[in-house]
Design a protein around this nucleic acid. Structure first.
Lengths: 200, 200
DNA sequence: TTTACTCTACCTACTAGTAGGAAGGCAAAA
DNA sequence: TTTTGCCTTCCTACTAGTAGGTAGAGTAAA
């Protein structure tokens, strides 16, 4: 009982890794077909058009991300730990090359020429991620864990930019370690010193 | 006496804007030909292959960037002003949509599937930019203008990631103002308070 | 007369997408 | 129980159009 994954899931999995590698125009139905050993036409049966395939793909990605972030929050970890788990997750993805870039970040760079239905979903993911980061920062401030220079929404945007920029640098330099080297100090800076002046 | 630009310059100009919009796989010789009113084959006369075209394009981009950054330094502006001019430049490019993204940042996201000759040049630009930022930060520290949490090289990497991430966010949200909203506080944070505790 | 440039015309390989059929599972009707 | 028909899935074979790239001829200036 090995691969229980349905064909359409396999298609989405391969498409995801191809998009992460080369973006929307960086893959074709033929690539996917070859990778999972079926014919092009079979893919069109599951996903009539490329725009629809990628739309479903992004929808799934958003759902997975939302579920992951929600479970992070529900595990009652402190806001500081939530942030740490978040960047540890990406650090692991980049280090083992399992997913060395965010699908939506990749697609966002091509925003201008994306089918509208895809562009809308990519933007939605950015909004969702910004909202999650904002709420985590806000909670951290209320618990006295963080001290922010700016309002939580702005600080969240700054943090998100750091994360995406760090992914890009890691890729551009071919140094996976750059991701954490850039992001970790950015997060450390948010931590408020406690009353004894020590660092948690 | 209007367009003195040579055909090959026109080709590179159009190709640049097409790459900024959609990346390496987001444009074709046909697109360029249509845009400047010549035939595809004429482009092949100037640039035999696509990889060569983009290589020359990136070489030119790097030269322009180097010249710009060098002149910034030679205008004897303070390190703080140099940084400010740098982000003001990008802010203007993004706001007037004349160049809403860095060519090399765009290509870096597709690093994994770029022709090697192009990938090498993109990486070189990242190294050059990191080196320039490092030297500016270093000079700022020596002049007592900046106070850094980390070593200049690391701080430069963090700053570069912020800039690229901010470009991506501005594009993803369709809000050009996001760029400066993210980058400005990041730079303000570097400034050291002077002996009177005021902000320069 | 060479050189630089652009053209028409063409090539092969690949693009997303379509048409129509074969194979098998499933369920209701005979 | 068998038959009928539907549904899903995948297939072969195809379309029109686009990709990067080539061959060779025309043209104009040095």
């Amino acid at each position: 009982m090995k691969s229980m994954a349905s064909t359409s899931d396999k298609i989405l999995d391969i498409a995801k890794s191809l998009i992460v590698a080369g973006g929307y125009n960086g893959f074709s139905y033929a690539d996917i077909a070859a990778a999972i050993g079926i014919r092009k036409a079979s893919i069109h049966h599951h996903f009539p058009t490329k725009a629809e395939l990628v739309s479903v793909l992004v929808d799934r990605y958003i759902k997975q991300a939302e579920a992951g972030l929600r479970s992070l929050r529900e595990q009652a970890a402190s806001p500081a730990d939530q942030l740490q788990f978040y960047i540890d997750f990406w650090n692991a993805c980049i280090r083992d090359a399992s997913q060395p870039f965010c699908v939506c970040a990749m697609l966002a760079s091509e925003m201008q020429m994306l089918p509208e239905e895809v562009a809308l979903r990519v933007r939605a993911h950015f909004q969702g991620l910004a909202a999650w980061l904002t709420s985590v920062l806000q909670a951290g401030v209320e618990q006295g864990l963080f001290r922010l220079d700016k309002r939580p929404e702005e600080q969240a945007q700054m943090l998100m930019a750091s994360v995406h920029g760090a992914m890009l640098s890691a890729r551009a330099f071919g140094e996976p370690g750059l991701f954490i080297a850039v992001v970790a100090p950015e997060i450390a800076r948010l931590r408020a010193p406690d009353r004894y002046g020590t660092v948690r």
